[in-house]
Design a protein around this nucleic acid. Structure first.
Length: 695
DNA sequence: CAGCCTCGAGTTCT
DNA sequence: CTCGAGGCTG
């Protein structure tokens, strides 16, 4: 059926009007028509589209909601990583930041783009040819969760970019970086509704926003009013995106109708930064959204590039945080917890107190020294804050309020769980239970670690189940997991047959693993994920690792006498060897190889040009994530190190390469760009089939 | 031998 | 996320 031009025209008009009103309302905070009027336009559009479904396009405002619920979020790789910012809390730290920047750039004064630091969830929005395609959470900075459908329901996110004052044509590709948050007013409204429905209230706008964005059913997200605020651009191709100043990039984003902070500004010098911070702090209460500080970025993009990055944070920007909010409460007692390696950790039990958005009841006291340093006694009145915004911490004791019956804490001489002697070695801060695996606490933790995601990755074997299995003497070691039958699980009563079946299934599935995961899963002291990988790569086979003495072990890069000794002692223990035997007999298996130990010798035979070569990755790669690049290099026998030294063979420099690049130049080390790396990888594959380039 | 960087381990709450 | 410690570099 052909659609009359006037209907087509009307639909287009309606869409434009609705997006314009969305923009006025959400980005400018200046609606020009009453809500009822807006609803009428929306309804008319919906009716027309219902009537003529062929008119529906994904960028229609009616299509913001509409997809069916998901089962799980899939992953999205950020083209340019979403790094975190360094923090400053005090004026002196801001001064130091400015001084460093000036020194590196060799100038007297630096211009900064400044803005409030929104307290929400960082997301990255991908636009292709001006159309909103996908959006993802920050995740680990490299890979995030695909929350496109939920983001589409946020009306301040443009589904299609308008032509703008800079360019009539949209960038071919653009990642827009910003924060999803809930306005204070919308948060109050949501909680009122939750209260009326007798459902749980949210603790703060940030949690409400996070909960809403992580809904699997976009329909749910749509009922919560979320807002987006842009603060920058990630990877980008084409279009007339400004390349000179960050402030111009922000103006550009605003011209594309992205909401940006109205309080943004450009200032010069450290004094002006502190002045801005003070102004924003004064404004804080009156802002429509929560913030947790201010952000300062070197405005000149060429200067930004010159400053580069240190490990995971840019050197050209810093987050100046407001002091963490503190609350005062009572310390009711100090419990002692036993960790996987037998560490005894004193934990403060607090009278519940609301601080930094959550109710805190526990706070770690780390160790005995820490308790002495802070002079904490049971019964004290203490100030508590959430350090780094997450982990609660006892800041100080109000000694004038100390009651006469306050009790001095003494670290127990015996493990509170198994009763074995607790020892504190000279020079060490921690006290450890000597019960080893006879201590049920350590045994439980060891099994939990074995099953954890990064180790054997057994779903469903969590805290509670392990507790029950060990307490009821159903299992004693990780190897016993593989002997579990469905009937054994059923004796626990609580567990339905189906979920028991799931657990058994997950255990079976975990039998196929890798040597690196297996080594990590063993829980050898001082051997984490990275060291486990190093060991697996070097030895290639478990037996060779088990036979190695401390001296052999120190041949492995990054392993010194301490770690070597931990490993050797672990395998010297008959009990550990027995568990490993049982695991193998129980069907746990992995692929073994020659290891680089041997590969090093035959690299001259041309097996792989990369064996024994050390790479350092820096900057952002376009078509590979660092993880990909790392895997590919390692697959061919190369090693990826963190920092450049004269022992480095190649530095792979992406865009925004920083200090490592400069160091490589200084040291005269071969520098590859991404294409060069891919070429090298391909050439080095020799007789192997070339893998798909994945471009 | 000092300083830098990376890794391991422990921790809270939803 | 943060701290402490181990390992490497200069």
């Amino acid at each position: 059926m052909r659609i009359a031009d006037d209907i087509w025209h009307r639909v287009r008009k309606l869409r434009e009007a609705i997006e314009q009103h969305n923009y006025n309302y959400y980005a400018l905070d200046a609606p020009t028509i009453p809500d009822a009027e807006y609803d009428k336009l929306f309804q008319e559009l919906q009716e027309l589209e219902q009537h003529y479904p062929q008119l529906i396009t994904p960028d229609s405002p009616t299509q913001r909601i509409g997809a069916a619920p998901l089962k799980a979020f899939s992953q999205i790789v950020h083209r340019m990583p979403m790094l975190s910012l360094g923090n400053a809390f005090k004026a002196a730290e801001v001064d130091a930041f400015d001084r460093r920047v000036r020194q590196t750039l060799g100038v007297d004064s630096v211009e900064y783009a400044v803005e409030p630091k929104f307290d929400g969830l960082a997301v990255s929005l991908c636009y292709e040819g001006g159309i909103f395609i996908t959006g993802a959470t920050r995740g680990d900075g490299y890979i995030g969760e695909d929350v496109t459908l939920n983001l589409r329901t946020i009306r301040s996110i443009p589904l299609q970019l308008q032509a703008d004052g800079y360019s009539a044509r949209s960038p071919v590709f653009m990642e827009v970086r910003g924060e999803v948050l809930m306005l204070k007013a919308d948060f109050e409204k949501l909680n009122r509704q939750q209260r009326e429905k007798n459902e749980k209230e949210f603790i703060n706008p940030r949690n409400a926003a996070a909960g809403s964005l992580r809904q699997l059913d976009p329909g749910n997200t749509a009922t919560r009013r979320l807002t987006f605020l842009a603060y920058g651009i990630g990877a980008c191709e084409g279009g007339n995106v400004p390349r000179d100043k960050h402030s111009r990039v922000m103006d550009y984003l605003a011209s594309l109708r992205f909401p940006v902070a109205r309080e943004r500004n450009v200032v010069s010098g450290a004094t002006a930064l502190l002045e801005y911070h003070r102004e924003i702090e004064e404004l804080r209460e009156r802002l429509p959204y929560d913030i947790d500080g201010t952000v300062y970025k070197v405005n000149d993009l060429a200067q930004q590039e010159k400053l580069g990055f240190v490990s995971r944070a840019p050197r050209f920007a810093v987050a100046h945080k407001f002091p963490a909010q503190e609350a005062v409460t009572e310390l009711l007692g100090i419990d002692v917890q036993v960790g996987r390696t037998g560490t005894l950790t004193p934990v403060a039990r607090l009278k519940p107190v609301f601080v930094g958005g959550v109710t805190v009841t526990n706070a770690t006291l780390h160790n005995e020294d820490e308790i002495r340093r802070k002079d904490v006694m049971i019964g004290d009145t203490v100030a508590v804050r959430r350090a780094g915004d997450v982990i609660p911490e006892v800041v100080a004791v109000q000694k004038e309020k100390r009651p006469p019956h306050a009790k001095f804490f003494i670290m127990p001489e015996h493990c509170p769980v198994c009763g074995a002697k607790a020892v504190r070695l000279p020079g060490e801060a921690v006290t450890r239970c000597t019960g080893g695996l006879f201590c049920p606490a350590q045994r439980k933790q060891a099994i939990l670690h074995f099953a954890s995601r990064r180790a054997m990755n057994i779903d469903g074997v969590g805290h509670k189940l392990v507790e029950q299995l060990v307490d009821n003497a159903i299992i004693r070691t990780p190897a016993d997991l593989y002997k579990l039958g469905i009937t054994a699980l059923a004796t626990l009563g609580r567990m339905a047959e189906k979920s028991a079946g799931n657990v058994i299934g997950a255990i079976q599935k975990s039998k196929n693993t890798t040597l690196a995961r297996f080594i990590y899963a063993l829980g050898i002291r001082n051997v984490g994920e990275t060291t486990a990988k190093d060991l697996a790569r070097y030895f290639g086979a478990l037996d060779r690792l088990m036979e190695a003495d401390a001296e052999d072990l120190q041949q492995v890069p990054d392993i010194g006498p301490v770690v070597a000794q931990s490993i050797a002692s672990f395998f010297a223990e008959g009990h550990n060897r027995e568990v490993i035997e049982q695991l193998r007999a129980g069907g746990v298996r992995w692929e073994e190889g020659a290891g680089t130990q041997q590969a090093k010798a035959d690299s001259s035979a041309g097996l792989s040009r990369l064996s024994g070569k050390t790479f350092v990755l820096t900057g952002t790669l376009m078509n590979l994530t660092r993880e990909d690049a790392r895997e590919k290099i390692e697959a061919l026998g190369g090693k990826v190190a963190g920092s450049v030294s004269k022992r480095t063979d190649y530095v792979v420099a992406g865009t925004d390469a920083g200090s490592k690049y400069h160091r490589a130049v200084e040291l005269g080390i071969a520098i590859l760009d991404e294409a060069g790396l891919l070429q090298l990888l391909q050439d080095s594959q020799g007789g192997l089939h070339s893998t798909s380039r994945n471009l």
